[in-house]
């Protein structure tokens, strides 16, 4: 952001408030020139690949566009088709909400609970347990190893175990049966979900001010549960809010695991999510306007859920 210094730097004596605000801002912008230059490379990419695409996607959702012909304005037609006429989207929406409602809160509570228990261990064991719980989320997307556990033939571990112990006589098709597939994806999703927020909670617990805890015990806090609710949680509120954002965002974005385990498309769309629906229209059918409408709905859901939960979390321990 280069500044043209010459013509604007004439001192302005005009009494108009608006003008003086602008000149002051301009002077500050010039003064912080170096800051803008430092930020420029990141911000240009950030706007190019995140901010502008979100806005562009919203605009595109009002058009019919197939990458070949010139976009044609269709008003709300994409949305009415999506919300009223697309049965598969309804399945995707139902599945996505179910994943979000289950994996979101469960993984969030698990992140905190395990961080809380681990925090009481000696430093060496704590480091080890942190690794054990965090490792799956960074293990290079190797969640397909779950395929062998739930494999539909007798060589699958679950089938092998259940057949040997006599619970079932014939192998169960875990991954193609609509009854089981959602549960299995939720299990694997939870396995992957102790990520950034888990680390943030561990770090947050280690920085809770111990004088507060001592003061609390004088003020009549009797046990660890009261200490957790009245002291630990409120002093960790910033981390709790950060963790919530991480868990909510990822719980709405389930797709890779569903595709790896159930295939794409899955049997009767049993494991179809908003993201896989988006991929279907965006990368296979090339209905970009319609896909953008799906993306905009997803954006609204994620942002809405996040802002709502932020509001609720602000009340913790108040």
């Amino acid at each position: 952001m280069q500044v043209e210094a010459a013509d604007r730097s004439v001192p302005v004596h005009s009494p108009a408030v608006k003008e003086s605000v602008w000149t002051r801002n301009w002077r500050e912008i010039k003064k912080s020139k170096h800051h803008y230059i430092l930020m420029a490379p990141y911000m240009i990419l950030f706007f190019m690949f995140t901010v502008i695409p979100v806005v562009f996607s919203m605009i595109l959702s009002f058009f019919y566009f197939n990458m070949l012909e010139f976009p044609r304005f269709v008003g709300l037609q994409n949305y009415s088709r999506l919300l009223l006429g697309d049965d598969v989207f309804m399945i995707a929406l139902k599945n996505t909400l179910m994943f979000a409602v289950i994996t979101g809160p469960v993984s969030y509570i698990a992140c905190f609970l395990f961080a809380w228990i681990i925090n009481e261990l000696s430093p060496k064991i704590r480091a080890f347990m942190t690794l054990v719980f965090y490792a799956p989320s960074i293990a290079g997307n190797v969640y397909f190893i779950w395929l062998i556990f739930f494999s539909g033939d007798a060589y699958g571990y679950l089938n092998g175990f259940l057949m040997k112990t006599g619970f079932i006589l014939e192998p169960v098709q875990w991954l193609t049966n609509e009854q089981y597939i959602l549960t299995i994806i939720i299990i694997v999703q939870l396995w992957l979900s102790l990520g950034t927020s888990f680390l943030a909670f561990i770090a947050g617990l280690q920085t809770v001010d111990h004088t507060l805890i001592e003061a609390g015990s004088i003020d009549g806090i009797k046990n660890r549960w009261q200490e957790l609710w009245f002291i630990t949680l409120p002093s960790m509120r910033p981390q709790l809010m950060f963790g919530a954002v991480m868990q909510i965002t990822s719980s709405f974005a389930v797709a890779d695991v569903a595709i790896a385990l159930a295939g794409f498309p899955s049997v009767n769309y049993a494991a179809h999510t908003i993201v896989t629906h988006l991929m279907d229209y965006g990368t296979i059918r090339f209905e970009m306007g319609y896909a953008s409408a799906i993306a905009t709905v997803l954006f609204g859901l994620m942002l809405g859920a996040n802002l709502l939960i932020q509001k609720l979390l602000r009340k913790v321990g108040e």
Partner: peptide
């Protein structure tokens, strides 16, 4: 400095949705 707060707020908001939202325009 002018814009610093707005820019940071946008960054925080962008943590609240995943990359799939921008997949279509990104491809273009």
């Amino acid at each position: 400095f002018p814009g610093s707060k707005v820019l940071f707020t946008i960054v925080v908001l962008s943590l609240m949705f995943s990359a799939q939202v921008t997949a279509i325009p990104n491809y273009m």
